[in-house]
Nucleic acid binder design. Sequence first.
DNA 1: AAGTTCTCTGAAACCGTTTTCATATTTGGT
DNA 2: ACCAAATATGAAAACGGTTTCAGAGAACTT
Lengths: 369, 369
Amino acid sequence: MAVTLREVAAKAGVSPITASRALNNSGYVSRELRDRVLAAASELSYVPNAVASSLRSSKTQLLALLAGVINPFWAAVARGIEEVANDAGYGVLLCNTDDDPAREARYIDQLVRRRIDGIIVAATKDSASILQGLKRQHQAFVLIDRVVEGVEADTVRGDGSGAAYRLTQHLLSTGYRHIGMISGPHNVSTAEERAAGYRTALIDAGLDVHEDMILHGQYTESWGYEAAHKLMSREPRPDALFAANNSLALGILEALHTLGLRVPEDVAVVCFDDTTNLVSARFLTTASQPAQEMGRVATRLLLERLAAPERAPQHIILPIETVIRSSCGCSAGDRENSLERTEALLSPAAVLPVELAAGSGSEGSYGQR
Amino acid sequence: MAVTLREVAAKAGVSPITASRALNNSGYVSRELRDRVLAAASELSYVPNAVASSLRSSKTQLLALLAGVINPFWAAVARGIEEVANDAGYGVLLCNTDDDPAREARYIDQLVRRRIDGIIVAATKDSASILQGLKRQHQAFVLIDRVVEGVEADTVRGDGSGAAYRLTQHLLSTGYRHIGMISGPHNVSTAEERAAGYRTALIDAGLDVHEDMILHGQYTESWGYEAAHKLMSREPRPDALFAANNSLALGILEALHTLGLRVPEDVAVVCFDDTTNLVSARFLTTASQPAQEMGRVATRLLLERLAAPERAPQHIILPIETVIRSSCGCSAGDRENSLERTEALLSPAAVLPVELAAGSGSEGSYGQR
DNA sequence: AAGTTCTCTGAAACCGTTTTCATATTTGGT
DNA sequence: ACCAAATATGAAAACGGTTTCAGAGAACTT
């Protein structure tokens, strides 16, 4: 049914190989023949068969991202991956695992059968043995965001413990003493790592770590909601909450709202992952992970591994920027990103902030800026 | 490098075809040979090469979902698709278009090259010509959620105009007279359709349609936020807002919050798409689309088309349930799903709602339930 | 007992490209 | 003018499965 390279070649009066070379810009083809082939191809509306090409070249030109994809952080990662991959002529498959090891395993099997060139995996600890299997089959892969003990592979991740340390330190130096930590599942390394940074900061400040102030659960809004309710009923009541990711933070905000507590006046909140796309999160002090960059780096690493399969594994740790905004209640709190400021910017009906309307300008400097 | 069927066959002392039949449960193979083949395969840890198999059978056993996947509605749709597809032995590729026609086109080209068996597309109107191209190439596809004029194809969608009509009618019968409509982009059929249902409801109620009360933009939280601010500065100020999808609703809620307006006391809010997963949206009166079912139906339709390419296109419209909760402020407002009720359920520290604490039980019925 | 229909196995061709090898023809350097 | 390198084209084999065709024995009909 479909037009084949042979037919294109026949129409152009050349051999299939020449047609192939013309269409792929590979090897030597005279300008004249190239033009004839291209004309024939477009006339027949030829669509190359990637399956056949993959079979012969044993390259599928496909990479896959295996992660709980449905969430802004991973969406950004995926974007970074696609960017680099597409530039290098690769397509990207998005495989949504929901962090479920069974789904993870099913997907990996599929990907191997289909001879995907390389896989970028956000793995749970449960999948160590599967990943070891991949190594045995010489399937190229890269770990992203999360490390897995016992698996030798290229890795890219953020400096989660460092950033958690700094955020905690910031809360401590602002004066908070009862900081609750709401984190993700135990089988995900980032959840442990962020909790670890929090603990170290407390210890370094000479404070006791109260393990019952650290709650682990899913990286979801509803767990954030539930956990915040739990922590806020503790005695002494926490004066600050640390959310180990952004979904958790949203749940926490909602919980505090229903409890009638204000942020940061009654409780400070800090979190991981930036989400300036979410209006409701724009005032959150956060450890802003370079998600897109992480995707880019992971892809480069993977492409390099494809080129040099025997190279020693690389481990890249990206710095995480701490963005101080207003939800932590410190004096440096970024007025540009406070709730009120956001409102002023977006609402046509809003009154000018007091400082601007009343302040600073000495002479009548209307229109000055 | 990789083990081939031939090697398995050799080890089992049979021909490659017999090995193939044994591994695929196709055709006749005696129990004895089958066992020998299976043993050989597992011993060599044979992984079938799907590329080779696809080439010969001209079936990739792959379907693709082309949509702005990163969002709870589409995540649910994707789940429905995977469910049916996996049962039928198909894998599913998630292709995130961000509703960008250029990305859409790029993806479609890739999918065709790779000889994907079938595509499930949430198309913008801009992609009509691309879709027509697909038809010409006899590439099987199904339209989901959104229709595209001029493209003959199987379609599955919700009864958007009907549901919008009913929600509007509900607001009207509750007494609201100034209902703002915040909808999605003009090049997406659902956005138009929902606005149309809203208009019809007003007209049928004998009211004028004020076109400046209908705003179109992206289906994003930030557009919802912005549009709500715009509408709430109109005179007369709207007493109700209709969000054409769930992201818009979140932005609207945020905007109303910053304006210090309560829902539903000051402004009623209704929306499309259910999202009981989002704590902040659980009290919203909504047109709950059967997202997962939509995915399932689309996949069945696609599989049927693969089996019978010449069949006349089917058009399936799924009913949309109107879920009355408390954000519309009607007397029937579902107390089970009010904000306060949600709080009471999830917060260990919460006080019992007044009615329960004070009410109903006559004799001292402690421990009764 | 002869004719059908199942059951079981394999040989050879094929799917649509690209790789490898071979052969001309130019071009470039000296 | 001669040898090496670059340019240009093609024939044949290969990638790893499955389809098609074919043959043979076993089981079932009538």
